[in-house]
């Protein structure tokens, strides 16, 4: 399957990655190669095979509903690029 520039731009947008025009061709070429490797899977008929999502064939455990965390806002916000009045600041969100 060819992975062209249009496809690349669409995917880069979904993944929020910026690519310069110079990069685009190289990246598209690399991804085309990777997809060719992946496409080897298509040689096997798997119509009757049940997908395996997870190696563990067990079920979800449940957590009791009680508070285990305490407020660490000031400490945790030291890790953030930009905070003000306890809020994380980002460029204006336009809905």
């Amino acid at each position: 399957m060819a992975f062209d520039k249009t496809e690349l731009e669409k995917v880069a947008q979904l993944a929020r990655l910026h690519m310069s025009d110079a990069e685009k061709d190289e990246v598209a070429g690399r991804i085309t190669d990777i997809l060719a490797l992946i496409d080897q899977m298509q040689s096997v008929n798997t119509d009757s095979v049940t997908p395996l999502a997870h190696p563990l064939d067990v079920t979800q455990r449940l957590r009791p509903d009680y508070t285990t965390e305490s407020n660490r806002r000031d400490e945790l916000q030291k890790l953030a690029p930009r905070v003000e009045n306890g809020l994380y600041l980002v460029p204006k969100v336009i809905e």
Binding site: V11, A15, L17, V27, L35
Partner: peptide, 11 residues
């Protein structure tokens, strides 16, 4: 590259 491949595979 891997983010791109993964994003594409799920799209």
């Amino acid at each position: 590259r891997r983010i791109m491949v993964g994003t594409y595979a799920l799209s």
